[in-house]
Simulated assay, not measured.
Amino acid sequence: MSSRQLSDTKNALVSNPEALSDPDYSDDENVLPGEEIAADDDLLDGEDSDTDEIICTHSRVHSIPALKLERFKKVLRICLRQNAIQRIEGLSSLGETLQELDFYDNLISHIHGLDELTKLTSLDLSFNKIRHIKHINHLTELTDLYFVSNKIGHIENLDGLNKLRMLELGSNRIRVIENLDSLKALEELWLAKNKITELTGLGGLPKLRLLSIQSNRIRDLSPLSEVPQLEELYISHNALENVLGLEKNTNLRILEISNNKITSIKGLKPLVHLEEVWASYNQISDFMEMQEELADKKELTTVYFEGNPVQLRGPALYRNKVRLALPQVQQIDATFVRT
């Protein structure tokens, strides 16, 4: 890259400074066509036609048909991360073999071109410009589906994905958990960094064991009674003031509630299988309550309470007090302790 091009690139990065601070900023309507730098004539020229994996990342790929993928008759996995692909096309000939398809960090706005890929088990469309989930119902073999950091406002059109085990929708514009009842095999649901206010819509997921919903607007945990089988809950950076409502979630092993407004951990006593409690940067002030709620948890190995009044009021004695209250614990914050 010439010095002039480098200078132009630097200027472009700051030409819209509001985009750096506003997560909803969009200037799609005013994008000017830039100079298109052509990729090599045949990026995959040296690739064995019998290969089962194609990896072509950060290679300025604009056109999938230009890769001439139809010559690879045994390919199982294709990774086209960090390119400039706008359209999903040129993949129909791979329908008999392709199982994993990765378009992480491209310029895709619409989901098309997957009609023949019925053997896909993993599809990654993270870091694109997708607004609507469409045209994937026929991918009935999918087990893992990624839509991190798009512009999706609604959970929709997932009916038919009966084998889906993991759904990642973090960093979108979702306000309501909805339209998930058909996903009876779903085990992991990732919804961090959205605009969700309520934990409703989970009752139809009998196998859900992990829920990640950090950085939302949750105040009430009681709807989680509809998913008593839940084992891992990650709900930091919300608006919780207590942990009441988890009494029926007796299978919980990992509870991450850091960076809320929690003043009391009363309500954790029924959670007999807890192994890790992450509760940093709340308003917890009572060592006695900590002991009452957690001392009987024989499987508890890790606790985080830094940044709470229990630590800030007496940092020199804090760790010893936690050890006295919870002698079974092996790790307090980032420090391992003797057992």
Rank of each mutant, 00 (worst) to 15 (best):
M1R: 10
S2N: 15
S3V: 15
S3W: 06
Q5P: 01
A12V: 10
N16D: 07
P17L: 08
E18K: 02
D22S: 15
Y25E: 13
N30H: 11
N30Y: 06
V31C: 10
E36H: 08
I37F: 15
I37T: 11
G46Y: 09
D50H: 15
D50Q: 10
I54P: 07
H58P: 00
S59N: 03
V61Y: 01
H62F: 13
S63L: 04
I64C: 12
A66M: 01
R71S: 08
K74E: 08
V75Y: 13
V75E: 14
V75P: 06
R77C: 10
Q82E: 04
N83S: 03
A84E: 04
G90P: 11
S92K: 08
E96S: 14
T97R: 09
L98S: 13
L98V: 12
L101Q: 05
D105W: 07
S109I: 01
S109V: 08
H112R: 11
D115H: 09
L117H: 10
L120Y: 07
L123R: 05
L125P: 00
S126L: 07
S126G: 15
F127H: 03
F127A: 00
K129N: 12
K129G: 07
V148Y: 09
S149N: 15
N157R: 13
G160M: 07
N162K: 11
R165S: 15
S171L: 05
R173T: 00
I174M: 11
E178T: 05
N179W: 01
S182Q: 02
K193I: 06
N194C: 14
K195G: 09
K195C: 09
T197E: 13
L199M: 13
L199I: 11
G201S: 10
G204H: 06
L208M: 03
R209Q: 05
L210S: 15
L211T: 08
I218T: 10
L221F: 08
S222T: 13
P223I: 09
E226W: 08
E226Q: 11
L233N: 08
H237M: 06
H237Y: 15
A239N: 12
A239I: 12
E241H: 01
N242V: 02
V243I: 00
V243A: 02
L246T: 03
K261Q: 11
K266C: 10
K266V: 14
G267D: 02
P270R: 11
V272A: 05
E275Q: 03
V277Y: 05
A279K: 05
Y281Q: 14
N282P: 08
F287L: 12
E289C: 04
A295W: 13
D296R: 00
D296E: 11
D296K: 05
K297M: 08
K297A: 09
K298S: 09
E299R: 15
E299Q: 15
V303M: 03
Y304S: 04
N308A: 07
L312F: 01
P315I: 05
L317W: 04
Y318L: 00
R319W: 12
A325V: 10
L326E: 08
L326V: 05
Q328V: 04
Q331T: 07
I332D: 12
I332R: 04
T335L: 10
T335Y: 12
F336E: 06
T339N: 13
T339D: 11
